[in-house]
């Protein structure tokens, strides 16, 4: 049976502030990603180069699916279902890695260069987003390691929830980047 970790009460008391802090972080990150999106339309209007549509749709589906597995992990830990939470985290990490490989493949096979305006915008947007995905994978691995050591329970799981929320935020960013880079025009 999971035992509440030391400092559990203090964490619970600070939970509203922790949540608000995380959302403020998301807000500041939104400014960064919003500026990148603005740059894309300012420089190129709705024009774009040829990109691999199938690959774009594929990696988008994988990232959306990873949000479901992350949600499953969080819901499972809220109900103290440790096994499902573990597999939800593992699935999210694997799907994140597949997404990253997909972006890498797109970079390797791109028909435009970084010297062109579209290439510059495309590599910057996908690169910064992929950096966030990779850091998200790292955070999820740390959370998974803690979960496997029995650090979280139904009542005490804020680090896992925070990591999953960060993952969802990265997913939301891609929801806007995907049409801007692959579908517009």
């Amino acid at each position: 049976m999971a035992v509440a970790a030391p400092g559990y009460g203090a964490t619970q008391a600070r939970l509203p502030m922790l949540r608000a802090g995380l959302w403020l972080f998301f807000f500041s990150e939104s400014i960064l990603f919003g500026l990148l999106l603005t740059t894309r339309f300012y420089l190129l209007g709705i024009d774009r180069e040829h990109v691999d549509q199938l690959l774009g749709l594929g990696i988008t589906s994988i990232l959306l699916l990873s949000s479901v597995t992350a949600f499953t992990a969080e819901t499972a830990i809220e109900h103290n279902r440790q096994g499902i939470a573990r597999w939800g985290l593992i699935a999210t990490i694997v799907l994140g890695l597949i997404f990253t490989v997909g972006v890498g493949f797109e970079w390797a096979t791109a028909e435009f260069s970084r010297e062109e305006a579209f290439g510059s915008v495309f590599f910057t947007m996908t690169g910064i987003h992929a950096t966030h995905v990779i850091s998200g994978i790292g955070i999820l691995i740390l959370v998974l390691a803690q979960q496997m050591r029995g650090k979280y329970s139904g009542e005490n799981h804020w680090p896992l929830s925070g990591a999953v929320m960060y993952w969802h935020f990265v997913d939301i960013v891609w929801v806007f980047f995907y049409p801007a880079l692959y579908l517009v025009s």
Partner: peptide, 21 residues
């Protein structure tokens, strides 16, 4: 899509909700 993810997956409504003790 962002609203769906924000509301159902990120539980944005919890930001304004006091915790039950």
């Amino acid at each position: 899509k962002a609203v769906l993810i924000g509301y159902f997956f990120m539980h944005i409504s919890r930001v304004w909700r006091a915790e039950a003790h």
